[in-house]
Amino acid sequence: MNIFRLAGDMTHLFSVLVLLLKIHTIKSCAGISLKTQELYAVVFATRYLDIFSDFISLYNTIMKLIFLGSSFSIVWYMRHHKIVRRSYNKDQDTFRHFFLVLPCFLLALLIHEKFTFKEVMWTFSVFLEAVAILPQLVLLQRTRNIDNLTGQYVFLLGAYRGLYILNWIYRYFTERHFVHWIPWISGIVQTLLYADFFYYYLDSWKSNKRLQLPA
């Protein structure tokens, strides 16, 4: 494992910890899109179908369990915890996220490396992860004023994907025959979706102002 992969994994893990901190400590999910969290739960559930059948390493298994458990617990808290769900911006979180699922699944049926159940589901999870952030970005655009923890959560998610691109570049030049077009293209698309948010996040950080997106 290279430094970019490790940094990407840790950044992804920190993003989850920031969100869990907000939900468990502040008892608030204001500014967080339940639609995006549900999509991430689907992403991890379909990506880690091999968790009990193909052992890669203890690190790999632990990370899979963390992301599976945290994604479903976040969805549960936002849907069922009495205090947390009161802060949910339901009227503004109206992106029809299920319309993202079918196109990603059909694309996975058409474009994949091997036509097996696990491979198609893995490819589907890669395509879906690329667009899963859209409901969250739309919600932030509507609420405009973004608290620090929500801003940090979204920034860390974007940074994780950016670090993974550096990981792929490193592996391309250091490993023979390392070519994986499906995650590469999906990862680039996903990172580009964050571009506007990154600009305003870094601008607010430099000027020490509250993060605010334009209408």
Rank of each mutant, 00 (worst) to 15 (best):
L39E: 05
T11W: 10
I83E: 15
I23W: 05
H97L: 01
I165A: 10
V42M: 10
I133Q: 03
I185L: 12
Q37H: 13
Q136R: 10
C29E: 11
T11Y: 09
Y48P: 06
F95K: 06
L20Y: 15
T36H: 08
L109C: 15
I185N: 00
Y170H: 14
I111D: 02
C104Y: 11
L21Q: 06
K114D: 14
Q141R: 11
V16S: 08
Y160V: 00
S73C: 03
Y48Q: 06
I182K: 03
N148I: 11
P103L: 12
G8S: 13
I23M: 14
V18P: 00
P103Q: 09
R96L: 13
F67H: 12
L13C: 03
Y59F: 15
L100A: 07
M121Q: 06
G151Y: 04
Q212H: 07
S204W: 05
Q152W: 15
F117G: 00
N167W: 09
I146Y: 09
L156Y: 09
Y201A: 00
L166C: 15
S87M: 04
S125A: 14
Y194P: 00
L193S: 13
F124E: 09
T61L: 15
V18K: 04
Y153L: 02
T36P: 02
F44T: 07
G158L: 08
M1A: 12
Y160L: 00
A7T: 12
A108P: 10
S186M: 08
Y194G: 03
I56M: 04
C29K: 07
T191D: 04
S87R: 03
W168K: 03
Q152S: 05
E129W: 01
F117Y: 15
S207Y: 06
A30L: 00
Q92A: 14
N89S: 10
V154G: 06
T61Y: 10
L6D: 04
C29G: 08
L202K: 04
R96V: 12
F99T: 11
V120H: 06
L128S: 03
S33E: 10
Y199H: 06
E129R: 05
F14I: 13
W184R: 01
L34A: 03
M78H: 04
R210K: 13
Q212W: 00
L13P: 01
I51S: 07
V84D: 02
G162T: 08
N208W: 07
S57G: 04
I83P: 00
S28Y: 07
L39F: 11
W184I: 08
N89W: 05
D196S: 12
T150F: 13
A7M: 15
P183G: 08
C104M: 14
V126I: 15
R5M: 06
S71T: 08
L213H: 01
K27H: 11
L109E: 04
I185Y: 04
H24F: 15
N2V: 04
L34C: 02
E113F: 04
T174E: 05
F4A: 02
V101D: 06
P135I: 07
M1Y: 10
L20I: 14
S53D: 03
H177L: 10
